[in-house]
Write a protein that binds this DNA or RNA. Structure first.
Lengths: 183, 183
DNA sequence: TCGCACATGTAACGTGTTACATGATTCA
DNA sequence: TGAATCATGTAACACGTTACATGTGCGA
């Protein structure tokens, strides 16, 4: 009965895979970068680190190089790395693009952990397929709007369509970049 | 001490402004349309309707036209309509586009409630400005990435940039549509 | 000396998710 | 008869937000 892991947990695991850090360092990353959407208030991140430590996914040790002002530095355990890799390689479906798109992008950002550009290629291809599925659904919805639908509502839906179209273009360009490389 | 109102609450208020509906109707809307991102599990929506009713923002009455199978139909009160309008006309800042973009689009979708296309024009112009502010921030972040940044992380940030660029283009086009009209 | 950045946490609170509960009607 | 749809809800649980608590070191 392994416990449920949240997106924030995965974000922490990914960041800690880049470099061992303290809770404070992680907070600053959330505050200053585009990853801020995954929060980073102390009331979220310190409990999350505690949970991950209890589950054996990260281990924290107090840094004593600077005697006063101790920091607790966390790094992923091998179990944590495995958990992260499983998440990264998960399959993608329509619901992921429809409701959890930023989680998908977070996964992609950490995809370097897997090492193989083959896995990344797979990810991007599945992403593009799901994007196209969802885009055709959205377009159908747009065309099927009752004619009395207010212009604003119509445009709001169109905004979503444009965002997803941009993402699909991006995915196609990204695939090309990874097609040229080898793993 | 007015209670905090969640995005789901506003979504419900907006939908009920279009037409009086039961909880079940609302759930189906969330399930079948792009508004699904704002959830709509029974465990979220029925309590939300109860809260709104206790706060006097909606009123529900049992529909007896169909004797068996009673439905409780909700409609916004005048206080509820006012609350909704205040939310719709709220100012937009950088944090809204950075962390709550779909909430902004939800607001825009319900903007017909305000009646005046002047308010909508204002909304779109503020939105565009905030988008441009955030876009320049993201671009700066992109250019400032350390050169050892993995390609995947770099591309993930680029995906965000492309999404926001698409939104800015959309906003410019929308402004034109509302500039032509009068209110 | 004042305030800010460093650094880690806890407590109250409310909300959403998941799963369950109930029961009638319609259709195959 | 059994499954799906209509229709409304409740209960357990855990998570995130907001606000608070505490204390050091450094620069103006």
């Amino acid at each position: 009965m392994t416990k449920r892991i949240t997106t924030l947990d995965y974000a922490l695991l990914g960041l800690l895979s880049q470099s061992a850090q303290s809770g404070y360092d992680l907070r600053k990353t959330f505050e200053t970068t585009a990853m801020g959407s995954f929060s980073g208030s102390p009331g979220a991140i310190y409990p999350a680190l505690g949970r991950l430590e209890r589950q054996g996914l990260v281990s924290g040790e107090v840094d004593t190089t600077n005697e006063l002002r101790p920091r607790k530095v966390f790094r992923p355990t091998s179990a944590g790395k495995k958990t992260l890799r499983i998440w990264l390689a998960r399959d993608i479906d329509r619901d992921d693009v429809a409701h959890r798109f930023d989680e998908l992008m977070l996964r992609f950002a950490f995809h370097w952990v897997l090492g193989s550009s083959k896995a990344t290629r797979r990810f991007l291809e599945r992403l593009l397929t799901s994007l196209e599925v969802y885009l055709s659904e959205l377009t159908r919805q747009y065309k099927g709007l009752p004619k009395e639908t207010p212009l604003q509502s119509r445009l709001a839906l169109a905004a979503g369509v444009e965002q997803y179209r941009a993402s699909a273009r991006w995915a196609r360009a990204a695939i090309k970049q990874f097609a040229e490389e080898d793993s």
